[in-house]
Design a protein around this nucleic acid. Structure first.
Length: 809
DNA sequence: TCCATCCGGGG
DNA sequence: GTGTACGGATGGA
């Protein structure tokens, strides 16, 4: 017998002698990679009696069941909650997971209702054994041999929870550079691979050139490069291998090239090679090592909280780390390689290493949150990394369903799905603002509005329209239909969301005293999960989907926020704006303290854990009109806080195809207007920029517009400026591949805009077309702001000096 | 305006 | 792997 302190990181199973063997890969407290084996676990599902089949009929059916490919191990009668009612079921255990889909087909033919017959076997194991990845377990067992394993294997006899958590996870980041190719298949060679870990950096390449960098290592061929890739990983023994879009690019590329040279990439801890996921979901799993693709997390989880709408490594690193990629044109890599250009190749190695460095730092920064999320929803980090929030909510619910003895609902059928998709849910309430510049704005918002609503009104599919409260429950504020939720019995979803909210409050309380980054990651994970419930309930693929619940949640949200607006107006506050869960107001004759008092009073009447909070005081804010000037624009405003930070909502400042100068002008104008409260200065600033543009005093850099080529040039029908530029490049023998971001400026050479677009290399600042930039770039981004301040478009661009508006101030 | 498909990230 | 893939842009009808 051996005893180990073990942190599971990855789980899968193999079939041995027609029976499943669970394999838990992870590391011990001492840092040794081990595999814990359990061969005492079998797949099962439930069947439910109905009008055609009584429970006795079903028992009889399964007791006499024979099938050459299916072997039943056990039949048990159990009771579970289904739609809020206790229901008798049969639990059918079979020999191995592969038999379950075959069984499903048979049951479908015989119209027998089955449940939980699509829960992945390894995940089922984690649920039933209550094993949570990255948490400590004390395992007793026997050392055993297992086919092909690189590491020690222990057959589990006993398992109990420990207290510790995985702290020093070993991360290795990698990145490849390939010879840029016209085709999208991985047909051109990989030229270099970089690695970055703690105290570890390396770039391996197969073209020898002169370099002083000691991180550069040379090999003789692409095949040797791939071999080195494998060796580096085997030597470093990472817990996490991380890349940026490595699911969709780096690893598939490496796998493809290794196949070509017959290099065995047996980096899995069981000597398996990484394999491409089937279907269109390009996932690459490495047995025993968590492959962490930072891009996947960015897209699936972080996207809502990031400012950037482009998830390139450069943009994401800029926002999260404040660092950037090495600035070099990737298309120069081909020529540099062919001509063995020492200086450029050195630069490309640096570029290659920097990408690994950025990826490493992103992974290091994000991993604590992901590990916390993994623990909350009880899934391996590999899965959490790749799943959308709705799936995490679902997995959280499935885990807890077992604890509450609730039968997991099935996924929707094809028809149900079509029906669900055809309906749309009315959204939040947004108050149209009166355009203008406001001073001393106070903001109030509901703390976690949707989650607290679900809890307070017991909203869920199971509590919907219960027969017990038909006459007593207050209906939800939805017009034209009567919807109510049970007052007698708490629903599963409300219980779960309450648990999340309360857990988070507890964590936040401890956090106040300890400032632990782990706890902060945990409270963020809990918040993220709670906030995803509403989306989950209304998401058509959900098992706990309920259209009426999702519609009721937004209906209640509209009801409560309107109540706050009405009350504040009655109390003589000026409500400037409101969106979903927040209200922005000015005090007029009254004071901030008065407003806070009113909010307290409102809170007295709110049910459950709902709470309206005072968020902050903003010295100034600006609201603009819509394009047609008929009304106030929703979701487009800017505020400045007491620390002089600009909060800009909805103004398109970060779009790629806006020039630097336009972005700069917009930001600066907002800053002058809100910080300095000086309309005249803002106006003069724009006038001054306009003059400078006209006099061509500004550097070319300010005028660059970036647009991405998304497909081969000949496939474009409409010739936009970027396509025209690409065509001209092709005439000179250059081929902008799909994905290339073209940088160009608009010049005066020609009539149509597309004719006037020129690559930046061919231009100087003398060539740019001032009127284009003034009218199409600068004016559009500030026009609405100046309209509020009393200036017209013409004031901004006309050639003669302006003075008539001085009287305004 | 509505429905199908393509794309994102990477080089 | 006991698995249907998301949501927006685009472009064709």
């Amino acid at each position: 017998m051996v005893t180990i302190r073990f942190f599971p990181l990855d789980i899968d199973y193999r079939i041995v002698d027609n029976k499943p063997v669970i394999r838990l890969f992870g590391k011990t407290k001492e840092g040794e990679q081990v595999c814990v084996i359990d061969n005492e676990f079998y797949p099962y599902f439930y069947v439910m009696p109905d009008e055609n089949n009584s429970i006795e009929d079903l028992k009889n059916y399964f007791e006499t069941f024979t099938h050459e490919e299916i072997k039943i191990e056990k039949i048990e009668q159990v009771k579970k909650q289904y739609h809020g009612k206790e229901t008798s079921l049969l639990k059918i255990t079979v020999q191995n997971p592969g038999q379950v889909p075959k069984f499903r087909a048979v049951l479908r033919e015989n119209s027998i209702r089955y449940f939980e017959a699509d829960i992945l076997f390894a995940r089922r194991y984690l649920i039933d054994k209550e094993i949570v990845p990255t948490q400590e377990y004390i395992i007793e067992g026997e050392e055993t041999a297992m086919q092909g394993m690189k590491i020690r294997c222990i057959e589990m006899k006993e398992i109990r929870s420990g207290e510790a958590m995985l702290e020093d996870a070993k991360i290795l980041a990698f990145d490849i550079e390939a010879y840029p190719s016209e085709r999208r298949t991985f047909d051109s060679p990989i030229l270099m691979i970089s690695f970055y870990g703690k105290n570890y950096k390396k770039v391996v390449t197969w073209k020898r050139f002169n370099t002083k960098q000691d991180y550069v290592e040379f090999v003789n061929s692409e095949a040797e490069l791939l071999q080195r890739f494998k060796e580096v990983i085997e030597d470093y023994k990472p817990d996490f291998i991380t890349g940026y879009f490595s699911d969709g690019f780096d690893l598939p590329y490496i796998i493809e090239r290794a196949k070509k040279y017959k290099v065995r990439l047996d980096i899995g801890l069981d000597r398996s090679a990484p394999e491409l996921g089937k279907g269109r979901s390009n996932n690459v799993k490495i047995t025993g090592i968590n492959h962490f693709d930072v891009f996947q997390l960015t897209r699936n989880v972080l996207s809502q909280s990031l400012k950037t709408d482009s998830y390139t490594l450069n943009e994401v690193a800029k926002e999260l780390l404040g660092s950037e990629k090495v600035d070099i044109d990737i298309l120069k890599l081909g020529p540099a390689w062919d001509n063995k250009d020492d200086e450029l190749l050195d630069k490309f190695c640096e570029y290659n290493l920097q990408d690994s460095l950025l990826t490493f730092e992103l992974c290091e920064k994000l991993l604590p949150s992901v590990m916390e999320l993994a623990k909350i929803v009880n899934l391996p980090v590999y899965d959490v990394n790749r799943q959308a929030m709705s799936q995490m909510v679902e997995w959280f619910l499935i885990n807890n369903a077992r604890k509450y003895n609730i039968l997991v609902p099935n996924k929707p059928s094809r028809d149900e799905l079509a029906e669900r998709k055809s309906k749309s849910i009315q959204g939040a309430f947004v108050l149209e603002p009166v355009p203008g510049l406001y001073n001393d704005i106070l903001t109030f918002d509901f703390m976690s509005l949707y989650p607290t609503l679900i809890s307070a009104h017991n909203i869920s599919g199971a509590t919907l329209r219960c027969s017990c409260c038909r006459d007593t429950a207050e209906p939800a504020p939805l017009e034209g239909q009567k919807i109510w939720f049970c007052k007698q019995k708490r629903g599963f979803l409300p219980i779960m969301i309450n648990e999340l909210i309360e857990r988070r409050l507890r964590v936040k309380k401890i956090l106040k005293e300890t400032k632990s980054p782990f706890l902060n990651a945990r409270q963020l994970g809990l918040k993220l999960l709670a906030n995803s419930f509403w989306g989950y309930i209304g998401f058509s693929f959900s098992r706990w989907y309920s259209f009426d619940s999702a519609a009721s949640i937004t209906a209640y949200a509209r009801y409560y926020i309107k109540k706050v607006i009405d009350r504040m107006q009655e109390e003589k506050f000026n409500v400037v704006y409101s969106d979903t869960d927040s209200v922005l107001l000015t005090t007029g004759e009254r004071t901030k303290e008065d407003a806070i008092e009113v909010a307290k009073d409102i809170n007295k009447d709110l049910p459950g854990i709902m709470e309206l909070e005072f968020e902050g005081h903003f010295p100034a804010g600006i609201f603009v009109s819509t394009r047609d000037e008929k009304s106030g624009a929703k979701k487009r405003y800017a505020l400045i806080d007491e620390k002089d930070n600009l909060i800009i909502k909805g103004f398109e400042t970060v779009r790629r195809n806006t020039s630097q100068i336009a972005k700069q002008v917009q930001k600066k104008v907002l800053a002058i207007v809100l910080k300095e409260q000086n309309k005249d200065k803002a106006y003069k600033y724009v006038r001054q920029i306009v003059e400078k543009v006209r006099r061509k005093e500004l550097e070319l850099q300010n005028f660059i517009i970036k647009t991405q080529i998304t497909k081969p040039i000949e496939e474009y029908d409409s010739i936009g400026p970027h396509v025209a530029v690409a065509k001209r490049m092709m005439e000179r023998g250059l081929t902008p591949l799909p994905g290339t971001v073209l940088q160009y400026v608009i010049t005066t050479k020609g009539t149509k805009i597309r004719d006037r677009a020129r690559e930046i290399d061919e231009c100087s600042k003398e060539d740019i077309d001032p009127e284009y930039y003034i009218e199409k770039q600068i004016v559009p981004v500030v026009e609405k702001i100046f309209e509020v301040l009393g200036y017209t478009r013409d004031d901004l661009i006309s050639l003669k000096e302006q003075s008539k508006l001085d009287s305004f101030f």
